[in-house]
Design a protein around this nucleic acid. Structure first.
Length: 558
RNA sequence: GCACCUGUAGCUCAGUGGAUAGAGCAGUGCCCUCCGGAGGCAUGUGCGUAGGUUCGACUCCUAUCAGGUGCACCA
């Protein structure tokens, strides 16, 4: 709203429209430069005057409304100072009015969003690299819900294909297959198949039987896959990550959609049969390498089924259609998107993230150097419970879980999507500094103060003199609260959770500074105390809103 | 070889083309008579390299070096 005002003010005096001006306004990074600044360089050519002269002239002409206290020119900049009392009242008023909607633009109200994420191969317990998909995906879902979208989260279950076939073969005649056995089973059969061509043939035979509708084989596949999906989703559910729909890849095998797609591509002359008899899509006009969609025996490959699935998702006609994929799938997804476009659909928006690496190198299933998500979670819970005991409390596994899972997610969410996360056990389990526990701790402190002040039950409808909040720590905190809606917008543009985690950390730090310098309970007088109570209520509200977006649960004590 | 992503402090990372590039960790020295110390204070010669665009470049463009990833019957 302050930027709006400045835009209007300046539009009366310079040859630009309001929107152009607003785009140029920057938030000052230095108190001496006020709160907002308008750089006059771009006007220099138009007005044929030196930027500094323009700034000086504008400073003379402008009549400031009440919400600004001062406007001065410093060199080529025109600096605006907001009126602190007005600003305090405005920000705290906005938060107390909008509550859990503060920060939301509401742009998604009445709109639907289909979001696909996780979609891990059902062959083993997820490692932390795969988990990044779920964590980023869950963040995107929560963010869009916060923006008002009706979000449905889909999980594509890859219940067919060579890998699953190997798993089924590896399980043999075993009646009961346990989730925890799958990883070993998978690694073992993988090695055996590599060395034994005969075994590999059996893998493909199984697949052939499945694709040709052998009921018993189909049941067995489904049984094994479900054990795996159950195990995987249980882990993600623990972390507060949930799914609305599980879409089984095999459904596209039996509904003729694969044949339809091949026929359409043939009609368009986009697909050719290579010398081995495989169907290959030519994507030269997109500058992409060709994509093989069937084996020589014409059984489908994953890309073909994925095209069918993607088109199926498009048929839901949602306002937004989003998929979360690893950076390694970038070229692949471009190919899929090109084909889907050719077939007359608008492909999903894609959000890519990079990998999780270990400090001493890459993760490798074969070398046993993967870090499983469940191990990471368990270690974090132990560590959090130790912390609880150290602080003189009884061991409390439930509370430890909330703290630990927040820490696990936060550690994965604070890196921007396009960068690799470098995983280091010690750092990942550290609860000091820029971590989930630190920000939770701020929240706990606020609640502790409010409880001691009896603020939660107090009548907070009376008038408050916000001009009393005039210490630096107070105005810094309020400025940070004011920034939240913009931060949410940035997160929506980038779909990267680090935007929110960095904001929360800054907010927590500013609260700590306030906590140190400004007493609430023992404030100098009751007016000041009331104003500060409103302030920390606002901080708590914004923390809760932000926690909701990154999927962090709160605790009452630590 | 081609394509995409990433090079910012010892380490891990922020930084919508605008004023003096910021955090956390580790190190060093301090602070528990203070609404909870999972805290705070002090301490720093850094934008891979070279050009270019611009009034202005960590940010945009080109080249180059380094790392990651992908590129025909895995999914």
């Amino acid at each position: 709203m302050y930027i709006d005002h400045i835009g209007e003010l300046l539009a009366q005096h310079v040859p630009c429209d309001k929107e152009e001006i607003k785009a140029l306004i920057v938030k000052s990074d230095n108190k001496e430069h006020g709160d907002f600044a308008f750089p006059c360089f771009p006007l220099a050519k138009k007005l044929r005057k030196a930027p500094a002269a323009i700034a000086a002239e504008l400073a003379e002409k402008i009549e400031l409304p009440d919400c600004f206290s001062k406007c001065e020119n410093v060199g080529p900049y025109l600096n605006f100072f907001v009126d602190q009392a007005h600003f305090n009242g405005y920000v705290i008023g906005e938060i107390s009015e909008k509550k859990d909607r503060y920060g939301s633009s509401g742009i998604g109200v009445g709109k639907a969003c289909l979001l696909e994420h996780t979609s891990i191969n059902p062959n083993a317990s997820p490692h932390i690299g795969r988990a990044r998909n779920a964590i980023v995906g869950d963040f995107v879902g929560r963010l869009l819900k916060f923006e008002g979208y009706d979000v449905k989260v889909h999980y594509f279950v890859n219940d067919i294909g060579k890998q699953i076939s190997m798993l089924v073969l590896g399980a043999g005649e075993r009646e009961e297959v346990k989730f925890d056995d799958l990883l070993n089973l998978y690694v073992d059969i993988n090695n055996r198949v590599k060395e034994d061509p005969e075994l590999e043939k059996q893998v493909f035979d199984l697949l052939y039987q499945l694709e040709n509708g052998d009921e018993a084989v189909r049941k067995r596949f489904r049984q094994i896959v479900d054990v795996c999906i159950k195990g995987q989703t249980a882990i993600f559910n623990e972390l507060g990550i949930f799914y609305d729909c599980f879409d089984y890849e095999s459904q596209f095998l039996f509904d003729n959609s694969l044949e339809d797609i091949i026929r359409q591509l043939l009609d368009k002359g986009l697909v050719f049969e290579d010398d081995l008899g495989r169907y290959v899509v030519n994507l030269e006009k997109y500058g992409l390498s060709p994509l093989v969609i069937t084996r020589a025996d014409k059984t489908s490959l994953y890309p073909l089924r994925d095209i069918a699935y993607t088109i199926w998702k498009c048929s839901h006609n949602t306002d937004k259609n989003i998929i979360i994929l690893g950076q390694d799938q970038e070229l692949y997804f471009k190919q899929i998107a090109a084909i889907v476009t050719e077939l007359g659909h608008r492909p999903p928006e894609v959000v890519h993230y990079s990998f999780v690496m270990l400090v001493d190198g890459k993760m490798s299933t074969r070398q046993g150097t993967v870090v499983l998500l469940e191990d990471f979670m368990r270690e974090a819970v132990n560590k959090a419970d130790e912390g609880i005991v150290e602080r003189g409390d009884q061991s409390d596994p439930e509370r430890a879980k909330r703290i630990a899972y927040g820490a696990v997610k936060y550690s994965m969410e604070k890196t921007s999507n396009e960068r690799n996360v470098i995983f280091d056990w010690d750092k990942a389990l550290s609860f000091d500094g820029d971590t989930g526990p630190y920000i939770l701790y701020s929240y706990v402190r606020i609640n502790s103060i409010l409880k001691k002040c009896g603020a939660d039950s107090a009548d907070l409808t009376g008038a408050v003199d916000y001009s009393l909040l005039n210490r630096e720590a107070e105005s810094d905190l309020i400025t940070q609260l004011y920034a939240f809606p913009d931060v949410v917008q940035k997160a929506v543009r980038e779909f990267s959770p680090h935007v929110i985690t960095h904001y929360i950390f800054d907010l927590a730090k500013k609260f700590s500074a306030f906590y140190r310098e400004c007493q609430v309970m023992n404030a100098e007088d009751v007016q000041l105390k009331n104003a500060r109570i409103r302030l920390i209520l606002s901080v708590r509200q914004v923390l809760e809103n932000a926690f909701g977006i990154i999927g962090m649960e709160t605790v009452e004590h630590m």
